[in-house]
Nucleic acid binder design. Sequence first.
DNA 1: CCCTGATTCGC
DNA 2: GCGAATCAGG
Length: 217
Amino acid sequence: MAWTDERIDQLKSMWEKGMTASQIAEELGGVSRNAVIGKAHRLGLQSRPSPVREGKDDAVVPAAAPAEPRAETAPRPAPAPRVALPAPERPAPAAAAPDAPPAPPQPQIRSIGPGGFLRQAPGETSAPIPPAPPRRLVPAKPSPEIAGKTSLLDLNERICKWPLGHPGEPDFHFCGAPVNPGFPYCVAHCGQAYQAQLPRRDRRPPPPLPFGGPRVR
DNA sequence: CCCTGATTCGC
DNA sequence: GCGAATCAGG
C-alpha cells in the first residue's frame, strides 16, 4: 500500500490526535504499526512519550549535562499536555486599573460534562458551541446473549475461530480457546477441521444425496 | 504475555 | 523511502 497524499494526511491527523501507531495502522489499513511509526518519523512528526525513551532523568539532566553526547539529535522539548484546560481561576477583569491595557480574551470557567462536552460557563449567555471532542468510534456490543462469549469482534490471530451456533442466532459466537499454533483453530477444533487424506481406494464414496448434491470428483 | 514508540538496516 | 526486525520499557 502506497503512501498517498491522502493517507499521509490521515496519518498526520491521527498521530497528532494522539492515537497510537497501532490504531492508526488499523484505521488506515494495509500498513503495519511499524510502517506507521517509520513514516511518522520520516515525516518529522513530533515524537511522543515512549515507554523506552524516558527511562532516566531525575535531577541528573539539569545537574551535569551541558555537554551533548549526541550533537545530531535536537533536544526534544517536554511533550505538551494533550489537553489544555482553561485555568481554574482567574482574577476579575481589571476594573480598578484604568491605565491597564484591555484585558485579553479571558478563558471561561467551564467544567467537563459527561461525554466530554464543555459545559456552558456560569453567566455565559451565548452557547459556547463546544467542539465535540474527537472520539474513537467503537462498535457497540451486539447483544446481551453474547456477553462473555467470543464475538466476531474479538477474533484475532491467537484465538480459535471455530464458530458455535449459526450466524444470525442471538448467541452465535466463536470458540475463543487458544489456537493450535499455526492454525486458526484450537487443537480440538483442528481435529474436526482437518482430516488426513486417505488413499483413494480407502475412500468411501459419499452416499447419494436425495437432491443430487454437489458433484464429487 | 500483552502493549507502547524508537531505531536500525536491508531492500 | 519503506517497513520488518529488533530493542527497550510499561
